[in-house]
Design a protein around this nucleic acid. Sequence first.
DNA 1: GGTCGTCATGTTTACGTAAACATGACTGCC
DNA 2: GGCAGTCATGTTTACGTAAACATGACGACC
Lengths: 359, 359
Amino acid sequence: MADVAALAGVSSQTVSRVANGHPGVVETTREQVLAAMSELGYRPNSAARSLRYGRFNTIGVILFGLSSTGNSRTVEAIATQAATEGYAITLIPVGAPTQDNVMGAFTRMGELAVDGVILIIEVHLLDATAVALPPGVHVVVVDSDAGERYPVVDTDQADGARQAVRHLLSLGHRTVWHVAGPAESFSAERRTTAWRRALEEAGRPVPPLQRGDWSADSGYLAGLRLAGDPSCTAIFTANDQMALGVLRALHERGRRVPADVSVVGFDDLADASSYLPPLTTVHQDFAEVGRRCVEALLRQIHDEPAGPGTDLVPTRLVLRDSTAPPPPTAEPAAEPTEILIPAIPPGPTTAAESPAALT
Amino acid sequence: MADVAALAGVSSQTVSRVANGHPGVVETTREQVLAAMSELGYRPNSAARSLRYGRFNTIGVILFGLSSTGNSRTVEAIATQAATEGYAITLIPVGAPTQDNVMGAFTRMGELAVDGVILIIEVHLLDATAVALPPGVHVVVVDSDAGERYPVVDTDQADGARQAVRHLLSLGHRTVWHVAGPAESFSAERRTTAWRRALEEAGRPVPPLQRGDWSADSGYLAGLRLAGDPSCTAIFTANDQMALGVLRALHERGRRVPADVSVVGFDDLADASSYLPPLTTVHQDFAEVGRRCVEALLRQIHDEPAGPGTDLVPTRLVLRDSTAPPPPTAEPAAEPTEILIPAIPPGPTTAAESPAALT
DNA sequence: GGTCGTCATGTTTACGTAAACATGACTGCC
DNA sequence: GGCAGTCATGTTTACGTAAACATGACGACC
């Protein structure tokens, strides 16, 4: 900057004024400075700027896996929205959700040049560590039940699952089987809870849970188990990838979809419309989640009050070709299923039912 | 920092020494400083540090879409590798590949707190703009043909496509049809060129190109066209998603895979093993690409010479259930095939065996 | 016992920027 | 013609940190 000032024959302050588009610089001077800038390849030093302003114009994003479907779309939306607000995104991936890794991420984050942090992470993993969020740091959490302690933005998991179950029941299915995500995931738990609750509210039996791990392979294994049970005519999977595995298993076992078995997924991946058959699924608006995260965080950064609370983004059911009424002969006898009913633990019905939306 | 120093009754320099683990601080003093730090919630200001050191310990990543399959995995690998080297990742997404957007990204990048940049972007889009890479900025480019001008890291697209074509020919197919990616994409072009070349080298006819846009939907449309042509017994798609669409189209048209038509994809998505049927495809090692990018960039940052040149990451063919010899009646006359057989180069038979199912 | 070396700690300075204040030239008005 | 006001530009300063140098106490050795 001093070099530019010297070359242009002005003071560094004038260079600063030109660089920031401040008024009060005569056109001829301006041009000299600009010429000197481009001749010397001058680029402002953002570290010095940050030091001067006390802001970094950067948002940190801590997450486990970018590859997991939704995350990459959420992050993209966050990055895009942040860019329009003049903020950049710093990514802090955490390899495995171990205590050490999470602690490490937080230690690094403390030293990071960020004005706030968006956590795409199961917060209870943080609770397991001794590390708390640094007190002065602005935070928004995605996909978690931390609504009482932090501002949370999330998809309305419960309503999505409810829509899926009700759709299947309305087609005439006696009940709906569920392939759940991993127990450590709050999203998975919320979908499972809502599924159970929707069945209970309708007075239907709750079949035993099939546990998957989000992967298509785990869906395939669950599908193989379900394919052997003729009473199973409707399956709700906690994500589309597991639905893909279920479809494959049913196909291999000769169970037609949707003639014999109906399947509903969750996520509405771009590919879901090309599955065999095209998948009826619950659409998640990842982009909207990302957008609201950034807005909520920037509100905090700009000193507007933002207490804890959960901001839910609605879902909608996308009807395609994987659901239909059950085959007429599908239900041999009601008895065995009825026996199962009492055996099912009622489970927590206190789960995060739609808390009031923010704003 | 001054506050900490005051509270601990030492100078700020001593605080600095403690913060950076420098030697020459007596244990009792050290403890006082640490106590003062935690009492005041002191965290070092990274802007000041960067200003002092002239380094940011941050790598910028410019890309178009995080959602596009490979990108998110590459970025994740970049972030992970960078983290182990003590670097953070700043993401600069470019919405649509318009000239304005690219220029905007570069302008922002110039002011960004990064020591180097990884471009996951078609570089010819840059050429279309008036903006050049700022001269002093270290750069590594992914997935581009800019090898003569910049260091490039990329998957060995050509060899992957060649493996796919040779595999199909070696099964006895007379020729291989191709569903290509968009013409603007260098990856797509390289795969297409290698497909054509492999056919020509084997003396096989080159069927008309089917153009897609990477999406499953575009694959579906191409698949519908190909399904109507009984001479088409082998299809190589430029990615797995389009293969998914092709599979759906063939299924809807009653063409069995692999009995009637064989299909090979490219990418080896996690889901590809759950397609109907599980897809034979070319495996890309995105993680390795990301790792090499970071290494190459850090070499530059640490002042080791790094001229232009392309670093190719090998691919491997993963055999699953979507390929088989052509149906006996598919070839109207045996003559051409017999003539052609000797023309088939032995080709790599090193393909990976169907991976064991997950447990 | 004086000198020198060692070691813990303090003081000064510079990194690049931009706000706040200072300067000086020029305009317009009485 | 002198004075006030305006406007372009220059000067000073501070942001938080850490390297370089300075200080001063203490111990060891001749």
